[in-house]
């Protein structure tokens, strides 16, 4: 019998430990985010070219409301704040702080407030005549801002689940970091959309 195959004679193999340098959930989410950034880049690109090509005085079209840039500034602050609070919650989670889930809940609430205020804004815009088919601005606005809102809702669902699991003490760090990555995308994408579409 081959000595190397005899478990009694051969030395026990040293187990090769594989250390994860980057959490798989974060890496997977990052690749997803790259695709999503390109989606929004395409839409913003089309918007920019269309706006640049509009005839003088035709953007927005006469009779169409202008976008409420001032009111949306508050939403923007809320969303950016939620990103900062989520970053703090990650630090607390890593330190196993008992208040981490409350901080995560605060970040979620700020994000939910952003989506809710966007809904209020949309209702007012629809009432004043800006619809998906009323003008190119309306089409682009609901497509780009609506797309972002959908991502925000998806991220809020994931973040809500993360919070629930954190409160139960069952949250895996990988899931939390992946969810965070996606939320940071939602947070950081918004100022670009706001600056391009609202002004």
């Amino acid at each position: 019998m081959d000595a190397t195959l005899d478990p009694a004679r051969s030395p026990a193999p040293t187990p090769r430990t594989r250390r994860q340098v980057v959490p798989s959930a974060v890496l997977g989410t990052l690749f997803f985010v790259v695709a999503e950034v390109m989606l929004f880049s395409g839409m913003i690109s089309a918007f920019t070219i269309s706006k640049a090509g509009a005839l003088p005085g035709m953007w927005p079209m006469p009779g169409q409301p202008r976008l409420p840039a001032e009111a949306t500034a508050l939403n923007t602050v809320l969303l950016l704040l939620s990103g900062v609070v989520l970053f703090v919650s990650q630090r607390l989670f890593q330190k196993k702080s008992p208040v981490a889930h409350w901080v995560t809940l605060a970040a979620w609430a700020l994000g939910a407030s952003f989506v809710a205020l966007q809904g209020v804004e949309w209702t007012a815009l629809l009432a004043s005549g800006l619809t998906l088919t009323s003008s190119p601005l309306g089409s682009f606005f609901y497509l780009i801002v609506g797309g972002h809102a959908l991502h925000a809702v998806g991220a809020l669902l994931a973040l809500g689940w993360a919070w629930l699991q954190m409160a139960r003490g069952k949250l895996s760090p990988g899931f939390f970091f992946g969810t965070q990555t996606f939320w940071y995308f939602v947070v950081l994408m918004w100022p670009v959309i706001y600056a391009r579409v609202y002004f």
Binding site: A46, S50, K51, G53, A54, S135
Partner: peptide, 22 residues
């Protein structure tokens, strides 16, 4: 209303410039 052409880069100058930059 809009003269930008995303395929050929035609249209008025501002649209062409935006097309190249984007």
């Amino acid at each position: 209303l809009t003269l930008a052409c995303a395929v050929c880069g035609g249209g008025p100058d501002p649209a062409r410039g935006s097309y190249i930059v984007m």
